[in-house]
Design a binder for these strands. Sequence first.
DNA 1: ACAAAAGTGTTTAGATTACACCCATGA
DNA 2: TCATGGGTGTAATCTAAACACTTTTGT
Lengths: 226, 226
Amino acid sequence: MEFYKIHPQHYVSVDCVILGYQDEEIKLLLYPRSFEPYKGNWSLLGGFVEDYESADEAAARILKQTTGLEQIFLEQVCSFSDPNRDPEARVISLAYYALIRIDLHDEECVRENGAYWIPIRKLPNLIFDHQEMFEKALVKLQQKAGYSLVGSELLPEMFTMIQLRKLYEAILQRELDPGNFRKKILSLGVLERLDKKDTSESRKGAFYYKVKSNIGEIDIDRIIKF
Amino acid sequence: MEFYKIHPQHYVSVDCVILGYQDEEIKLLLYPRSFEPYKGNWSLLGGFVEDYESADEAAARILKQTTGLEQIFLEQVCSFSDPNRDPEARVISLAYYALIRIDLHDEECVRENGAYWIPIRKLPNLIFDHQEMFEKALVKLQQKAGYSLVGSELLPEMFTMIQLRKLYEAILQRELDPGNFRKKILSLGVLERLDKKDTSESRKGAFYYKVKSNIGEIDIDRIIKF
DNA sequence: ACAAAAGTGTTTAGATTACACCCATGA
DNA sequence: TCATGGGTGTAATCTAAACACTTTTGT
């Protein structure tokens, strides 16, 4: 213990890049910071790591508090530890990113926190290094989408191939060939076509798919070259 | 400041997975821990993050102290924050991994720290979660090797195609086809063939190559499928 | 000349891309 | 029947993988 005591301790926080998909856009949950410094400026949802919890648990707690959701995809982005990143105090922050289904989240929670879903194409300035946290998280999401099907995290249980493609286009920020996308995804064998059709977009209607339930962690080589 | 004060502070440490390449093997720098708890058990090289430095700077400082090297490839792996990971105190650790040229490192430094280069195929038990840190770092190295040429970080300035392939085989832990590897690497256009040959391994001799100096961060799609 | 390592070429299989075309259906 | 998205097929191109073959050179 002697050896430890000569070293300083630091506040450790967790900041969550909470991403959802709505209206063919990826959106980020932000709120106007409620305390100084930079009170009122846009901020990621965050909080401090307490004594009794790991950072992963802290991130899950914050996600629960702000969206009402549990057991959500949540992964570390990286740490941010510039001694001057927060002018008020030395705070080392661990960035996380979460993928949530906006259709499932608790709007009440979000309203209480004064938070808003903001399309990532029109982000305002963020406090501290939160912009960089978002950018790094987006790259992680793009990589994840390239190697696994992010459909189930961001879309409802049932979705059409077109909806899935639009999601991928929003994530990768480029257009994908409809025919090739369909073939590639179906060749993975992880989707099950349902009998139902979505007739809201066309006369013919588009079949709904869902992720096969017996699929654990499938071993996908690469879905999309990016 | 009021808002901050109600939260706890924690020790924050940095643990470095320092990797090098020697005798056709990837080796990890380890030392027998010099203080309690677990004094004498094998540990990564680490230290505490001080008030005046970022975690990146702390990692670079530790790397300098233990290998004598500066301006080395050094990247975050992820954070480890289980409240009980260190039985002595609550310590949140940020794992880093570094790639160094064993031929350049300061053996004096290493000896002073009682550290040893240990082939990753024969690692002993490590303290705390250091085994997991190593495993995550190795995956990161494998990914990095798949998308960029790790030759210059781990090999001397000049190397033969065979040496580069052996390095990749050690990293990916599988054999690669000599002909295909050569063609793939050369097609990237980042290597320059020198006039010199390495004649120690054969009559014919193998040309030395070096990384072209005018190459910044080249945009490589994927070198090796893995 | 030949052994042994270095380096090149060839063939095949599979993936990616671009894009043309067919299908189903309600108005 | 026709306009409109939904869905399928195909040819051209590129890449990966396996492996046979040629080159070089000291002995």
